Amino acid sequence: MNEASLRRIIVEIFRLAYARRLVDLLGGNASARLGGDEVLITPTSMPKTLIKPQSIVKIKLDGTIVSGGNPSSEWRMHVGIYRVRDDVKFILHTHPPNILALTRAGLKVDLSFSEAISYVGEIAEVPYLKPGSAELADAVARAVSKKNITAVILRNHGLVTVGSTPYEALNRAEVLENLAYITLLSNCLTR
């Protein structure tokens, strides 16, 4: 896929994530791997509904800005994942409310529903670490370095999903958010 197409898809995926309430107007971020050591990533502090293909920032894996404005404050997390997983082509970081509520309640996402495990793969979890920090980036990269991990729950923060396509990463976030809702609801009903 060429750069112009990837820029359009990042905008589309992010608008879909916003429409599905996986992110707030200014929260979350997404990136796509370009060839070589370059990454396209959403800009920092821009409303999701205003992001355009030309708003997307191009950076190198070392964080150097190639073009565009300022990248998401979570750029370290994105490049850390790309460094440890060649098969990851797209990363979506969301703040899904049901996942956050579930982990806050000390519960785990139940992957036994339907074909969820085939969509999601395996989930890792990292403790709360300051958003945008090198410590968070390192913890997520370590978790994702295991080949079967396709999602990482960031306690009291959000969710990171990865995929070979943007739609795979978004679908994983949606499936996990729906499973979190089902798990919360079923726990309430059985008490």
Rank of each mutant, 00 (worst) to 15 (best):
T94N: 05
T94D: 04
H95Y: 05
P96M: 05
P97Q: 07
P97V: 10
N98S: 15
I99C: 14
I99G: 05
L100T: 11
A101Q: 13
R104Y: 15
A105F: 15
G106L: 06
G106N: 05
G106T: 04
G106Q: 05
G106Y: 04
L107T: 07
K108R: 13
K108F: 07
K108Y: 06
D110S: 03
S112D: 02
S112L: 00
F113L: 02
S114R: 00
E115A: 02
E115Y: 02
I117A: 11
I117L: 13
Y119V: 06
Y119M: 08
V120C: 04
V120A: 04
G121H: 08
G121F: 07
E122I: 10
E125N: 03
V126G: 03
L129F: 10
K130C: 07
K130T: 14
P131I: 07
G132N: 04
G132S: 05
A134Q: 03
A134P: 00
A134R: 03
A134T: 01
A134N: 00
A134V: 01
E135H: 02
L136S: 00
L136M: 00
D138Q: 07
D138P: 01
A139H: 00
V140Y: 04
V140P: 03
A141I: 14
V144Q: 14
S145W: 09
K147I: 08
I149H: 12
T150D: 12
A151M: 13
V152M: 11
V152Y: 10
V152A: 12
V152N: 11
I153P: 05
I153D: 05
L154Q: 06
L154I: 13
H157W: 08
G158L: 12
G158P: 10
G158Q: 11
G158I: 12
L159N: 13
L159D: 10
L159Q: 12
V160F: 10
V160C: 12
V160Y: 07
G163L: 05
G163Q: 05
Y167S: 08
Y167K: 11
Y167M: 12
Y167T: 06
A169G: 06
A169V: 06
L170W: 13
R172C: 09
E174I: 15
E174S: 12
V175R: 05
E177P: 06
E177C: 10
E177H: 08
N178L: 15
N178F: 13
N178E: 14
L179E: 01
L179A: 03
A180G: 07
A180Y: 00
Y181G: 07
I182T: 06
I182Q: 03
I182H: 02
L184E: 06
